[in-house]
Design a binder for these strands. Structure first.
Lengths: 149, 149
DNA sequence: GTTATTTAGATAGCATGCTATTTAAATGGA
DNA sequence: TCCATTTAAATAGCATGCTATCTAAATAAC
């Protein structure tokens, strides 16, 4: 007979961090499967969301808008260039920076990729009422804001 | 004047998948910083949660309990062995499988590591009432269950 | 104007996740 | 018993994220 009474009880099923990790992995896997036929990967899709909205962004712009590190977006952009999704152009105002533009191929993927992402969101939230969905998004946003401080 | 009216509106701030990814990254970063002084990394902590609860698990057991791929846990276990957190032992019942046991060092980390994870959860949910916390965990669990189908 | 500092991006190195494949042992069927 | 199949783990290769560091250009200080 051992004594476990001095151990902290930490149930991963009741840990927000554990559940967030698990949920994010499942979202990424589901999205990956849906956009693979388009030749896209999840981080590329995330980046395209910004560039579909506005082109001629710099790495610095993307770092701020996506809240990722500069090294991360640099690598993602390399893969997107390799895959024919973006081109990089000289910035006449700052020779250190580069302006990122989409290829025609990347522009044509917008509808299909967006629909794929919406389908994955729909799968995850299938059992949620409109009010629950709104509350869920709001709570995730609050947790994000709290952790960014 | 261009026409944007045919584009799908997809706001990342209203996408459950996008928010889940962002939130999980912030949880992982925060946890990483808190447990780094202990010589632990997030995936190691996740694995330890299972092994603190029960030793002599196999890779297959961990795959099922953590819902990750076998190759993923194999790599994590390699790093944990390298860092002196686990040992691997012959399974008398099945010479293909191995029994994972904790080192004394890993056992002593339980309290501090658990407190670190709880502190990170607390930071994320600081503004949440007890009812909101419960609802948030329940919704994440529902989304996970929906996507695992 | 020259020098020091800051800033944009590239790169090295690593952790964590994945898929796909290989190896070896266990199991099941004939 | 022997062969085919299944199963546990290892390994290769890749994507996505991180930190830390380097280079080159822009900016600030003098």
């Amino acid at each position: 007979m051992q004594c476990y009474c001095h151990h902290m009880t930490f149930r991963k099923s009741e840990s927000a961090g554990y559940l967030a990790n698990h949920m994010a992995r499942l979202f990424a896997l589901g999205l990956q499967e849906r956009i693979r036929p388009l030749g896209l990967a999840p981080a590329q899709f995330m980046t395209l969301l910004e560039l579909w909205n506005e082109e001629n962004l710099t790495q610095k712009d993307l770092v701020q808008r996506l809240d990722i590190e500069q090294a991360t977006i640099a690598n993602t952009l390399n893969r997107m260039q390799r895959d024919g999704l973006i081109t990089r152009h000289e910035n006449p105002d700052d020779r250190r920076a580069q302006l990122i533009r989409l290829t025609e191929k990347a522009r044509t993927l917008r509808e299909d990729a967006t629909r794929a992402a919406q389908a994955q969101n729909e799968k995850a939230l299938a059992g949620f009422s409109p009010g629950e969905r709104e509350a869920f998004l709001a709570m995730m946003t609050r947790a994000i804001d709290a952790m960014r401080r």
